[in-house]
Design a protein around this nucleic acid. Structure first.
Lengths: 208, 208
DNA sequence: GTCTATACCGTGATAGAC
DNA sequence: GTCTATCACGGTATAGAC
């Protein structure tokens, strides 16, 4: 923090703001906090942005655009539903890691302002589209039918989103490593020998 | 909301406060918000509690005591590590649903006050004890060894914790139903036929 | 147990000099 | 682009009557 830049731009200010928002929470962050972290005074901030809420709006919009971008990629629109579902899980996870501060902020929005409520609405839209994908994969018989599609997609994306709570770019795991582990957990499960519950022949490898 | 009680007690006030905290966020909630929701004035609140932070402290303590209680139950202390791990997953999920408002609040704490930092420290302690359990299960060869124990427990408890983001007591799923679905997903995975990647004979059932 | 009235401070935001 | 000075408002919390 206090990464002073002699000349701030809206972009450099945004980076500082998002970082502080994610530490203290949006509501818990004052303009004075932002000013200290940016190395300038409160007033100077208003030269770059119209206010605190605009910083939030830019940040969550960036996160949402990234997530929706995934849904438009060929891997998410072509092929079997189960493959598209797996693709979206993996890519969403990578996108989350790539835009970590922005997505983190997005996922913590509560809905106290217009900006926040609009962000929540877009998030719901995203979740809905993913739930449709899970439903299609189940209908195809490629995902277990004993789990409700809505519940399934909620669990899976709860898992994906939870990554923001602990992932750090300078930590031991790379983004792709997390995406692989997560995908593998979701599709294959954690148990070492699947026949531990019911007697069954030995399953073949479950490579990524 | 505005569930007016003619006579408030610290307990009734806590229930109101936690509900509002979870909607607006702790920092986003003013004493005026609490007063309106409780149907009394700001001043009256101070007759029951010393202030806003005490309400938070009582709530998160209740959540943490519940979670640590799970770790002391026989199912979490006796038997094979993999079974204890599975037990803790399931029971934690049930505890989360049972104490939903308190756990929700706990999981959103940011660390801006002494109370919050102490809660975060206890949470880290809990996470650490669960990670040890996962490590033991992997060492026993009962959980896949290709996933790091720390990463595994982070993913699994990220998944468990994410339930607070969507679960509602009056919704379609019961607490045990969610706990079962979640445990099943974690241990067995989502794929209908594990050999779906390579051509294989007909798969056995994938019962719960 | 709840009220009105109030103290006191930090908040987001603006004006205008340099 | 940044500053000092200032504003109006809402924040937590207290005093004391009923």
């Amino acid at each position: 923090m206090v990464k002073r830049a002699d000349r701030h731009t809206p972009e450099s200010l945004l980076a500082v703001a998002v970082e502080v928002f994610n530490i203290r929470g949006y509501d818990g962050t004052s303009m004075e906090d932002l000013a200290k972290a940016a190395g300038i005074t409160k007033s100077s901030i208003y030269h770059h942005v119209t206010g605190k809420e605009e910083l939030l709006r830019i940040a969550v919009t960036r996160a949402l655009d990234g997530l929706f971008g995934v849904l438009d990629e060929p891997g998410a629109t072509e092929g079997a539903a189960v493959d598209r579902f797996a693709y979206v899980i993996r890519r969403t996870c990578l996108e989350l890691v790539d835009k970590l501060p922005y997505v983190t902020l997005l996922l913590r929005v509560r809905g106290n302002t217009v900006t926040e409520r609009e962000a929540l609405a877009r998030r719901r839209d995203f979740d809905h589209r993913v739930a449709d994908l899970a439903a299609a994969a189940i209908a195809d018989g490629d995902l277990r039918a004993d789990l409700d599609p809505r519940l399934t997609s909620r669990l899976v994306f709860g898992l994906v989103n939870s990554v923001v709570e602990w992932y750090r770019p300078d930590g031991p795991e790379s983004g792709p490593a997390v995406a692989d582990a997560l995908s593998s957990l979701v599709l294959t499960g954690l148990r070492a020998h699947q026949e531990s519950v019911l007697p069954a022949p030995d399953p073949p490898e479950a490579g990524s």
